[in-house]
Design a protein around this nucleic acid. Structure first.
Lengths: 344, 344
DNA sequence: ATGAAAGCGCTAACAA
DNA sequence: TTGTTAGCGCTTTCAT
């Protein structure tokens, strides 16, 4: 709580300097009503001279039009979410909006609290990557009458607009690829099994494996790569030792790489690896990692587009946008070669 | 520009429902003046029932106290900046502030434009990672009377509060380490040589190399790892071939790894590698990469602390906070072994 | 085409 | 302790 800057001139200062009314200044700046060229010029000059910057808070208060959009994500420090927000930002800027970005920390309680903080600024709408499929935040937004679109993860219950990737389909492809390569025991490693996109991924993998005789196992490995490494290291010491690792997010992939390396297993000789999220470094490790590339920028754009539609008054039923992923096949998931001494 | 939500009850709705004045509601909610317990209870209940969420924009307008801080960084999609913002966010939340985060895209013109957009919301202060050492944005903030603290990069000219790492010192350490390992031709790869922290790093390296007989060369490799790979691939084909690569940011490191790999050079046999920014994947590549770990969280906290001090009325001369980095020595920068077939 | 004046939701000064 | 009133900076009637 601090003293706001008080050196900023108000619209009145501009008006008096230009010798016009505040209404005229407003009209010049917002191109609302037509203003005589000479007056407009005087206004522009006064704006320049004073370094006037309009107060959008006051403007919003009176006009009841908001140019803020809220963004509620699990963690701005995660590169995946960072890329998502970057895409949102450029779209928002193009449309004249500013973004209020807050992190929920993956905690549903925080999520609700942060949404309330967002609504405090009266955003035109909110884009949220839910941290669980309950999405208590939805009720708050609905009660407030603020449009909300969900991204990445599928909230259960009442429908709202959703933009996500086709998790089932791509996971199906990955699992089929692994089985086709002769893998018999696929271990899926994920942060939190209860997140909807994880479930979709698991379902897709299961469907691909069904009837092939291969087995499928899910392991929760926590929310950091260090924890993932620990969990997976434990698991790799136990029986049956999996011959394929399907990591369901970038943190798990990293932890898995460490665990496999620590266990002295060779990739893809002893164990195949494939994971969600394709990051630049994944093709400089040896062997290069097979990865699912999510169209994160398109997700951002699509989410923004949906929000703008709602904000613009679209009252049609909620839609689900599903974007296709691409599978970047690299060496880590190839069939075990007869001879290959490669470590990780 | 959209219709703001109009379903939200105002403070008047709460007041009438609780049978009190709006002033009393305000006092209850902000714990300003003391209010009789029964009235307070009625207010709280009305707030609950109506789902009232105060309008902070209106509040700020009247009270002239702002609880938003602006954050101006080159690119929210870059993990380094993402981590910085994440640190800022938790500090800000603790102090009751919300963050308005915008990206300049590394363009000074955009930087100024985005700062103006920020000021439109009347933030209590602004934290900026400048995209060049001119920092035109500074003048705008000064003119507006809004406290600004710079981070990561050192703006030239009039002093403002600055939080950065000790680039010279750590670069000195790295270069000395490389030379001590027998390297004779060190190539520094950077995105934009004109950025102050890059210059400091180069100066540090030069100082360490001076008088050792080794040579030092700087190559600008662009702003993406793809471009970095291309530039470095070219360079590695030319003479003299460097025997050490000092990459000055994470993108350059990645590009360098690709270029070295493509050139068929072994690390650290043919060429040593060391770089700025320690990312989790850097110790899962082979060989693990020597990296400079920047205390990015502490940078965020220190920058926030500085801003809060200024916002609180501290008018002492600008201070420079320099945080120490740590050098994570790994295999990639070790002396060339007599025999080692390792690729990258 | 322009200005005067009201009022958005809130808090601070002033009354009671 | 509580209520009443004015007014933050802006936009929008409503006059002119």
């Amino acid at each position: 709580m601090s003293i706001a800057s008080n050196k900023m001139p108000s619209i009145r200062a501009v008006a008096s300097r230009a010798g016009v009314s505040t209404a005229t200044v407003s009209n010049v700046l917002n191109a609302r009503r037509s203003v005589a060229p000479d007056l407009a010029a005087r206004v522009q000059q006064a704006v320049q001279e004073l370094g006037y910057i309009a107060d959008l808070g006051a403007s919003r208060l009176r006009s009841r039009k908001s140019t803020i959009a809220g963004v509620l994500i699990p963690d701005i420090g995660n590169p995946f979410f960072g890329a998502f927000v970057a895409a949102l930002e450029s779209a928002a800027r193009r449309d004249g909006y500013d973004l209020l970005i807050v992190s929920s920390g993956g905690d549903p309680v925080q999520e609700a609290a942060r949404l309330r903080a967002l609504l405090t600024w009266r955003p035109a709408g909110v884009i949220v990557i839910p941290c669980d499929d309950t999405l208590a935040a939805r009720d708050i937004a609905v009660a407030a009458g603020v449009p909300m679109v969900a991204a990445d993860r599928v909230p259960a219950g009442p429908l709202i607009d959703l933009v996500a990737v086709d998790n089932f389909d791509i996971a199906y492809q990955v699992a089929r690829h692994l089985v086709a390569g002769g893998r018999r025991h696929i271990l899926a490693a994920t942060g939190n099994q209860s997140i909807s996109n994880v479930q979709e991924r698991c379902n897709g993998a299961r469907a691909a494996i069904a009837g092939t005789g291969a087995t499928f196992e899910i392991l929760e490995v926590g929310l950091s790569h260090a924890e993932a490494r620990a969990r997976l290291s434990e698991r790799l010491q136990a029986r049956p030792v999996p011959d394929a690792l399907f990591t369901l997010n970038n943190l798990a992939t990293l932890g898995a790489l460490e665990a496999v390396s620590a266990a002295g297993m060779s990739v893809p000789g002893d164990i195949a690896m494939a994971g969600f999220d394709d990051e630049p470094w994944m093709h400089v490790v040896s062997p290069p990692l097979t990865a699912v590339r999510q169209p994160v920028e398109q997700m951002g754009l699509a989410a923004w587009e949906r929000l703008m539609a709602r904000v613009g008054g679209d009252t049609s039923p909620p839609v689900q946008v599903r974007l296709p992923c691409t599978l970047e096949l690299r060496a880590s998931s190839q069939p075990a070669p007869a001879t290959q001494p490669a470590g990780v």
